[in-house]
Amino acid sequence: MREKLKHIFAHALMNLVRAGWGGLASIATIATSFLIIGIFLLLVLQLNALVAKWREQFRLSVFLEDRITQTQLEILEKRIQNEAAVRSITFTSKEEALANFRQELKDQQSLLEGLGDNPLPASFQLKIREGYQSPDALRRLSAFLTRLEGVEDIQYGQEWIERISNAAYLMKALGIIIGSILTLGSALIVSNTIRLAVYARAGEIEIMRLVGATKAYIRAPFLVEGMLQGSLGALLALGMLFAAYRYVAATSRLASPLFSIATDRGFLEPSMMAALVGGGALIGAIGSSLSVSRFLKT
């Protein structure tokens, strides 16, 4: 058994070395395919992170009537708090609103001098649970809130939320479609490359067959070789992707504050990297064993 394993691995490594440029070409092809998949995956992740960030920062404002009493205010706060959609609620009084406004205006505070009475309304700021951030759910929530006593107006940037959720939906759909096309495409390219490498060794396979090698004996080293090529290719792709990512993340942080939010999230998750390397090994193994089978009728 140990002798056999030794043979399989020694043979696979030897073949990899013997394949020389051909073997490198296979690894490079696999790496290129996985690089494209990796870039795509990273983009999807970043965009998802961006959307998640937007969602996290999303607030719904409930503006209150000026003549609301303290009791009404407390009752209203309770009722809003009890809504399933509401994750948290903060109160901003008229005075706080004015103070905030002043701070935002900073240098142009003179604009406020003619105002006399404080015209700004008190309000509740609601954070909404993620599941309730769809345009429909928000419309329902805001209709409900408008009817409550003491509520003057609701604002939550309806157009924005629709755009974001459309974008998120589109990304998911495109992600699945493009992702599957890319994966299928690389699987085909990789198995073709490996097939060429196996064809180049048709003579060796034939001789082994003729001197009485079993199918498993012939197939095993090719299988291991394919797995090695596949996982090496995927690792190479991850390495390149990581280097490129570090570079882009560093420069884009200066260029675009928007992108920097997303890049804070970091590189691909370890489980995804493992899946990519495992996927490489799997594609390599399948590609090579399919190719070898052509030479192994008996």
């Binding site: 003579g203 003729l210 009485g212 079993t214 199918k215």
Partner: peptide, 24 residues
């Protein structure tokens, strides 16, 4: 049976016109 074929071939020696030697 196909799985017995390798054992048959181990009882045989086979030589061809084009030698079928591995160049590498």
């Amino acid at each position: 049976k196909p799985r017995a074929v390798p054992h048959l071939r181990r009882m045989l020696g086979i030589v061809f016109q084009d030698f079928k030697l591995l160049r590498d």
